[in-house]
Design a protein around this nucleic acid. Sequence first.
DNA 1: TTGTATGCGTTATCAG
DNA 2: CTGATAACGCATACAA
Lengths: 338, 338
Amino acid sequence: MVTMSDVARVANVSATTVSHVINKTRKVNPATEKAVRDAIDATGYAADTIARSLRTGRSHTIGLAMTAISNTYFGDVVHSLEREATSRGYTLILTDTHDEPQRELRAIRHLLSHRVDGLVLAPSAGPAQAYAQVLRRKIPLVLIDRVPSEVLPRVDAVGVHNVEPIASLVDHLVVAHGHTRIGMLAPKTGIFTTQERIAGFHLGLERNGLDPGDAPLEHAGEDADQTSAALERILDRPSPPTALVLGNNLITVSTIAGLRRRGITPPHGIATVSFDDFPWADSFQPRLTTISQPVDELGAVAARLLLERMEDPGQASRYVRLTPTFQLRESCGCPPAA
Amino acid sequence: MVTMSDVARVANVSATTVSHVINKTRKVNPATEKAVRDAIDATGYAADTIARSLRTGRSHTIGLAMTAISNTYFGDVVHSLEREATSRGYTLILTDTHDEPQRELRAIRHLLSHRVDGLVLAPSAGPAQAYAQVLRRKIPLVLIDRVPSEVLPRVDAVGVHNVEPIASLVDHLVVAHGHTRIGMLAPKTGIFTTQERIAGFHLGLERNGLDPGDAPLEHAGEDADQTSAALERILDRPSPPTALVLGNNLITVSTIAGLRRRGITPPHGIATVSFDDFPWADSFQPRLTTISQPVDELGAVAARLLLERMEDPGQASRYVRLTPTFQLRESCGCPPAA
DNA sequence: TTGTATGCGTTATCAG
DNA sequence: CTGATAACGCATACAA
């Protein structure tokens, strides 16, 4: 490995000068500077981030801890976060929480031991006091997607609105298509966004004169099998719903597949509306009516909040709520567009 | 921050002993050990990976450099790589090459300056001598997906078979459905897998008595607009194809959308077969006939190859070719399954 | 305008 | 069985 002293020797200067040239941290004679730069090129020297971090206490890395289960969502967030981080000279370190408090804790410890300068966390279900540890160490932290209200004033966060969008999905089913038996396949219980989405479902029913207590609701879990089972349960009820609200993209995919196996293709036989859009939603049949999260922006805003917090630790904490957009297509029963 | 000396002081031992307890690197009196462990718990000490890396020369991180454009593929590979790495005590660092030699070079430098113990690279187009630098430093390297044959004997790699699977797609179009005008929308030019997939297309045509020189072929580029344009070009030819081979999942999505805008839904009007499967392919209409890459396995094998190389740098290099599977569905013209 | 000396937190060598 | 000490590669306070 070629170190700074090697460069210094080649350039006939001290390591100090090399360091200053690299970091532009004090004035140095143009001739000397050139000598140093030439030596750097000649030796192929690249600064050792590790040593630098040990010395400065800043690692120029940021950590991301979230579940990787929901692939398209995960990929999008990672992508936009990486883009933003890299453009500001930071490196992204990745860990998967598997949405389990236990793993989440380990992931965070992991990140901290790597001395990340800041971290982005999508809290799993559970008491989620994992971040207490982070806050204690005063490491800048941004919560993404799931934002428990308890911690809100003390930490930066970014998420989307869940309640009103889901409620408006219900509005549409009732007002435009006359449904009165509306069911929901909700994501894993205990997660913040799940609670909000269910609340939105109930709100939508109530304000349209329907009884939330009476509405079929099943938790679809996390994989295709659990979702299929939930779908079976909801369809086999005495008076099955004529429309379904699907709580996230995984649930949507499995549900469409499950309906298909029963010979049902929305909106025929049953109408569906979904939370979470994806590139495919507009290309296939049925074209899916969805609530589309601004996923890229979610990652970008998270990065921005984090970096700004890192620059100015004293500032008041911020909570950014992004507004998803309503993608009215055909699975809800609307006619094909012209 | 609580350091090893803090723990040592609390436990009334030397830092050396603390280190040995943590690393189980020499025998220590059970009583002493207990004292140390208690002190660790009491102080909440966590080893500083940075300092450790500086000392040992090993960072316990592995780097991934690939393009994040193709989201589902990217997410899947990242996911399985992260899983494998974490389970072996390694941390994953991420960089996006944007499929540009320039960015790729920067990404690799970045990773190297972070002293990754090994790295996984999906080479972009271009001369791709980026990894020369890596090899010079003798950092374990695994190529994933794109595997230029020039470097093959000198480096570990994992990829899928491209030629024969695409050829068999063509076989199917000809033999089962009688197509003779078959076109291809190929991915970005200059990339290894693109070359192989085109070769497979030509092989398939030839062995079915069709003239490759005569077959419509367009490069679809990387975004929806470029793909749409390529689709227009291919459909507006004097004698347009009756069947289309789509070179990757991005192209498939954009193509289906583009056809849709023209009022065409495969297999009616035109048949399609695609390289790359995705969870949605089986759930919507048309159900897509595809070649499905074992994406999870790709990531897992890459990690395994890398970790094994790191353990035994002397061993002969290996090239693992995974076999994708043929998912016969309906977009090619086959009747719906029972 | 430049150089010397020191320490970041850890592990490895050597000595006890 | 345990401890003192040096060194990893860099950035910075201080000195010149």
